[in-house]
Amino acid sequence: MNHVVWAYSENEGVSNEVASAATDIVKGSPGEVVVVEIAQPRAGIRAPGGRLLLKGPSSADSPGVVAEALYRAAKELQPAAVLVGATRNGRETASRLAAKLRVGCMSEIYNLSSDGQSLLGERNVFAGKVVAKVTCALPAVATVKVGSYPRMESAPGGTRELDVGGVDSPIRVASREKKAVGAVDLKSAKVIVSAGRGVKKKEDLAMLEDLAREMHGALGCSRPLSSDLGWLPEEHHIGLTGVSVKPDLYLAVGISGQLQHTAGMKDSKVVASINTDKDAPMFQASDYGIVGDLYQVVPALRRALSAHG
């Protein structure tokens, strides 16, 4: 068996990560790393051991087409392993390729290595609580967990071309449009100010929106405000039937703290809450609590924030 490891991703940055993963595998062995490209070479691709450009398919848009092209090339050149970046498309490409080649497919792998007989690696299971060590006999296909390897910086190499013939795809790309970015991105917000039924009327949300902005955060809410009262669009709804968030600071304002809500924010780092009811369940889910009327506490908080610039 030769020790050529192929690296592929439809995403340039991820491709450079996968190239690093492949380099790790061949480290200390006479193997080599080949970065595979489909249809067109891309400028940002780093290829330590040179690149293999597969000619024939008109584009690399469809995982089905990519898998077929890789399959035809692999049948001819017999690489020991094919690594694919575990992006949405990559996962599909890899599983299709492995099925065509009738070899094993490891998914979402990092810490890859090889003993010459098998591919070894690690993957997170049980929501990241446990690390599983997995192995698969060579030849093998694996998807590499995105973000687990540094991007290959610079490694020049020659390009070899291989014509794999045309690949038909039932999918035609009609046009490309950028995904509309929503006004609120609770998932990545570091600070979230969240409004509950303690807010008396819709107009009062402006005060909390201002507070959120001053704290460089986003505004969320509990179910009644979005689903029942319609004061905020659904994308603000945090909870079991809404978004799950884990900001550094979660400020619950006038939220009673039913599980319907807390299930969606329980992984927040620091939780503070404001409520008039000292027995509000929300306080038990909080690190800090202020028993008081939000209509007094929030303005005071904003004054204090502006005083500290």
Binding site: S256, G257, Q258, L259, A263, P281, M282, Q284, A285
Partner: peptide
Amino acid sequence: CLSSFDQRAQ
């Protein structure tokens, strides 16, 4: 589960 984890239902 609800009476175990929901602060209100506890």
